[in-house]
Design a protein around this nucleic acid. Structure first.
Length: 329
DNA sequence: AACGGTCTCAACCGCGGATGG
DNA sequence: CCCATCCGCGGTTGAGACCGT
């Protein structure tokens, strides 16, 4: 037995709202409010509409200060960043964009931004530069902060860290140590993905991460499968690839210099095997798949995690900067 | 001009959580 | 505690607009 409907659908009007209905709704709310009860609202306001429909119409269209029209680049950046951090929590994202509704943002993401993202990090177009608003093709010249930045100055979830991110990877929760791959648009990178044509890891195929970073890390550029040889679970998910980029980007910001170290294990470098994003974050990896070190002969493999690294606990880390405050509180 | 395919976005649907009796 | 009710959210739908041939 299903849930009882919220109203009798045969007795209420459905579909687009007429100007008369809008005016009735607006007039009543401006005068009396919704009375704290949307279900009984239509009766009081003299509307033949479902209460939920009234609520939606008011919140998404009629209430004051709703912003319609094109999104700015700044708004794009905020949406990209928050989506990377928390996923499709549209109401939370909307809370950071005054005048925008969750419905608006959701539509905008589904019709525009997702395509932008797909085309910019396309699997099928090799060496296409990432054109997302927060990525800059001239990243090598980007000035990095000379002093530390207060996390609360750019991280909207700083006040409530346990609610943040990572958990949107198949329900995975990174213990109490949540990290924030929140992208500061002032510190972009140039990253793109392409199908790898040169795969020799256990017969699995992978992807190339084309980046425009310093040459020392130029060989940190191949995604491969997870530890089981299955790439699909992690690598095929666009949001997670994006998240991986965000993590690298975030670390880059905090350590003031690119290093491919965090995700090296996740890439195949043909030497140390390959890893699993969940393991990387949680530190549950049991082999060398989480490589915190450099590349090739310079690498310092260790089964470690971002959490450990944030506390400077990981063995063999080559990172010079303690970055604890920026990863979790 | 006609047609078919694609895109947009307002509106709908149903679920989970909060609340109160 | 249980249950009913309502709210808010995210996913989905579909009518109309737009575009390419």
């Amino acid at each position: 037995m299903g849930r009882a409907p919220c109203c009798d659908k045969t007795k209420v009007k459905r579909g687009p709202w007429s100007p008369e209905e809008d005016s009735k709704l607006r007039g009543y709310i401006e005068k009396y409010g919704n009375g704290g009860n949307w279900i009984s609202f239509p009766l009081k306001a003299g509307l033949r509409r479902c209460g939920k429909s009234c609520r939606l119409r008011w919140l998404n269209y009629l209430r004051p200060n709703i912003k319609h029209g094109d999104f700015s680049e700044e708004e794009d950046r905020i949406i990209f960043s928050l989506f990377a951090a928390i996923g499709s929590r549209w109401s939370i994202i909307a809370a950071h964009l005054p005048g925008r509704t969750d419905n608006d943002i959701k539509n905008y993401w589904n019709t525009k931004l997702r395509k932008k993202l797909m085309s910019s990090s396309s699997f099928s177009h090799s060496s296409s530069a990432m054109t997302s608003p927060f990525l800059n093709p001239n990243s090598q010249d980007v000035k990095r902060p000379s002093t530390t930045i207060s996390p609360s100055s750019y991280n909207p979830y700083f006040e409530n860290p346990t609610k943040a991110l990572i958990s949107n990877i198949d329900g995975f929760e990174a213990d109490n140590h949540q990290i924030f791959p929140f992208v500061n648009p002032n510190y972009p990178q140039d990253i793109s993905l392409s199908e790898s044509s040169n795969n020799n890891i256990s017969g699995t195929s992978g992807f190339s991460l084309n980046h425009n970073m310093c040459g020392h890390y130029s060989n940190h550029n191949h995604f491969s499968s997870d530890v089981s040889g299955n790439r699909s679970e992690i690598i095929m998910k666009q949001e997670e690839i994006m998240m991986l980029m965000m993590i690298d980007n975030h670390i880059d910001q905090r350590t003031k210099g690119y290093n491919g170290d965090f995700t090296q294990g996740y890439y195949s470098n043909f030497i140390n095997g390959h890893g699993d994003l969940k393991q990387m974050i949680s530190g549950t990896g049991t082999n060398s798949n989480i490589n915190m070190g450099g590349s090739g002969s310079e690498s310092a493999s260790s089964s470690s995690s971002i959490s450990n690294l944030a506390e400077n606990k990981s063995s063999g880390s080559l990172l010079q900067h303690k970055c604890l405050p920026y990863f979790y509180s």
